[in-house]
Design a protein around this nucleic acid. Structure first.
Length: 642
RNA sequence: GGCGAUGUAGCUCAGUAGGUCAGAGCAUGCGGCUCAUAUCCGCAGGGUCCGGAGUUCAAAUCUCUGCAUCGCUACCA
């Protein structure tokens, strides 16, 4: 018989930032799924890694006076170092700067190039030589580069393009015929709706005159490959595509864990790349949502906690893993707060799991000095004391949910079982049975069933909390060597705890966190950071170039077909001008007439929606929208503002 | 503006072949137990299921419309 296999991946993380909560979640989810698949008897391969090429890395490296490679080494190491901290067991860690990866990217590119799906083409764009990049019209400030203040030049550049459009219909069909291809469903719909529009071909190169930190195209020495083409190939290069056994064994049915922001490259580019290269399409995508961390509202302790190192240091790895898996519905966004985390730890882990474990084993200690007595099946039937079917139900529900990445439901199934155990104890009152010699056999049956149930619980929590699972099993005297685990099949077999063995005193699995004694909130100063980050420092001379003037709005009207833009006529004293302002969502034309505002008066004029704009009015922007600048006393139009 | 999603108890959310679907967990209050990490068990309070209209004998659940929030996108000088 053939052993079933499963390949799971995380995205390769871009090395321009340190690992944070989002990275931790994706990796933990993939790790949990991997461990679960192992419990189902699958052979698994779990891949993670870092994405290390591109402009941003070069720039970040320059800032630190190091080379791109040195910089990438450093950040990549951070991602590698956090894996053991989160108890993630990956089979391989790939880096896009690995020689083998580069080789395979080239091989795939050659293959697609040979088959005619890559073509050379030139296009025109606005290019700033200072930044060494193209700008979209709308990115420019005053028609100039926002960084250099110089007007970008229209240049013609040639690049290689990948004919994605050719495969659009094929992809739509593939998604329709493979319901599992993108999960959960909402993201499948999203991709399909995106595919209703014609796909544009993908630019996959950068000339070396602009970027050298990348993989040279195999068919043109003067170009490097750009962005996704390099990154996505990691999923097969890591397995040793094309010839290795590992690739042959694990590639079929591969599933990629990704956050919702990168479903386009994964759901569209990647399958088309594979198709074009004649490689089997991966099995599917598991798409998850974002963690919201309420930025500035958070106290320091909470704020720091979003650093995975901090939170695991404070609360432990298993508690962190549990919280992430329990709190987020896979696919939807969720909130991360320290308060919720602590609440989960106290109620679910300490009060429920930890307490029932301690409760049962302490009783067994007290009544039988830790010795495991057996269950009397006759008494069990008579008094209806069996927990077997409840355990089986927990295993079944757990399995069904985990299979679909419904981690929260899987966990709920286990906790429902724990709740049954508590009720079972309450109903049968072992402390009463212990007082009467004649009911000792009933007590023995009771205790055996409870301990057996703890065994089942210990097996089921393995994917989410491997360490706690092992700790429980050690106490129960059933630990596997080498951090092993029980398969679902093994776990479900009732009656495995050996009678006559003696269990030690239980240790406390999860101490309660005393909320009262928690660090006083007022002591922790909020860590606020500018969002978006502050721009580069400028001098007073730089600022002096900007000519700000007071102005009065004398006329305002909506621009047809525009949802954001208002056409304003402003009085600047010396002259009146027409200014197009993107404030229509927050201000009705009539309500701003007569308002005094600040205008950037020496801004180069531009056209928007066909309308001339001779300046720009200043407004504060926040989440809710825009608030116009103004003055607390009336001023004459045309005055300087400084 | 376009496309999509969401809107159910104080909080986080379950809940569609439309009829015990008005629920769970946490939080709150009361009662009980004492084996356990002041844990566990039971009970209670509290909701116009975003508003409105419609289909139906019957709608949180279907249709339309409005409002709010979020995401993507278009034009944010």
């Amino acid at each position: 018989m053939t052993i079933k296999t499963q390949f799971f991946t995380t995205p390769i993380y871009y090395v321009n930032a340190k690992p944070h909560l989002g990275h931790a979640y994706t990796s933990i989810a993939a790790d949990v799924s991997t461990r679960f698949k192992q419990m189902q008897g699958y052979r698994t391969f779990f891949l993670t890694g870092t994405d290390e090429h591109g402009d941003k890395i070069v720039q970040a490296a320059e800032k630190q006076n190091s080379t791109p490679k040195e910089y990438a080494d450093k950040i990549s190491q951070l991602f590698q170092d956090i894996l053991p901290v989160l108890n993630i067991k990956n089979d391989y860690f790939i880096r896009t700067t690995d020689e083998n990866h580069k080789k395979i990217v080239k091989a795939v590119l050659s293959k697609i190039h040979d088959s005619g799906d890559i073509y050379f083409s030139s296009y025109e764009g606005l290019y700033c030589f200072g930044c060494e990049r193209f700008y979209q019209e709308r990115e420019l400030v005053d028609g100039k580069c926002p960084d250099h203040g110089t007007a970008p030049e229209v240049i013609k550049e040639s690049n290689y393009f990948f004919k994605m459009s050719k495969y659009q219909d094929w992809l739509i069909d593939h998604i329709n015929t493979h319901p599992d291809f993108i999960r959960p469903d909402q993201y499948r719909t999203e991709i399909l709706s995106f595919l209703k529009e014609p796909l544009e071909d993908l630019c996959i190169s950068r000339p070396k005159t602009r970027l050298t930190w990348g993989i040279t195209l195999p068919f043109d020495e003067n170009f490097v490959t750009y962005v996704w083409f390099d990154a996505l190939v990691n999923y097969i290069s890591a397995l040793g595509y094309p010839d290795s056994d590992t690739f042959r064994t694990f590639w079929p049915g591969a599933r990629h864990f990704v956050a919702k922001d990168i479903i386009k490259p994964h759901g569209i580019y990647w399958p088309i790349m594979l198709k074009a290269a004649g490689i089997d399409i991966y099995g599917g995508l598991n798409v998850h949502g974002f963690w919201n961390v309420q930025g500035s509202k958070m106290s320091k302790s909470i704020g720091n906690v979003t650093d995975p190192h901090q939170v695991t240091d404070t609360y432990g790895t298993d508690a962190f893993r549990y919280f992430l898996m329990r709190e987020m519905v896979f696919g939807l966004d969720a909130n991360f707060t320290e308060q919720t985390l602590v609440s989960r730890i106290n109620s679910d882990l300490a009060n429920d799991l930890g307490n029932v474990f301690s409760r049962v084993l302490s009783m067994n200690q007290r009544y039988f000095k830790g010795k495991i007595k057996g269950a009397d099946t006759r008494i069990e039937t008579q008094k209806n004391l069996s927990l077997k079917s409840d355990a089986q139900a927990a295993v079944d529900e757990f399995s069904m949910a985990m299979e679909k990445c419904e981690f929260h439901k899987g966990i709920q199934a286990v906790w429902h079982f724990i709740s049954i155990l508590n009720k079972y104890i309450d109903t049968n009152e072992p402390w009463t049975l212990a007082k009467d010699e004649s009911t000792l056999p009933v007590l023995e049956t009771l205790m055996y069933n409870l301990i057996e149930s703890l065994r089942v619980v210990s097996c089921l929590i393995y994917p989410v909390m491997p360490q706690t699972s092992a700790d429980m099993q050690k106490t129960l005297g059933i630990q596997k060597t080498d951090g092993g685990f029980y398969t679902l099949q093994e776990a479900a077999v009732w009656g495995q705890i050996k009678t006559a063995s003696v269990l030690p005193d239980p240790q406390m699995l999860f101490p309660r966190i005393d909320v009262e004694k928690a660090p006083p909130k007022e002591l922790s100063t909020p860590v606020k950071s500018f969002k978006p980050p502050l721009k580069e420092e400028i001098t007073i001379d730089d600022f002096a170039k900007i000519d700000l003037r007071t102005a009065t709005v004398v006329k305002a009207e909506k621009i047809e077909n525009s949802s954001k833009l208002l056409k304003l006529t402003v009085d600047l004293g010396a002259e009146t001008r027409q200014v197009i302002a993107g404030i229509a969502k927050d201000y009705a034309p009539e309500e701003i007439i007569g308002k005094q505002v600040i205008v950037v008066a020496n801004l180069k004029q531009a056209h928007l929606m066909g309308e001339l704009s001779q300046g720009m009015i200043l407004a504060a922007s926040n989440k809710k929208g825009l608030v116009l600048s103004g003055f607390d006393k009336p001023v004459k139009p045309g005055n300087c503002v400084k």
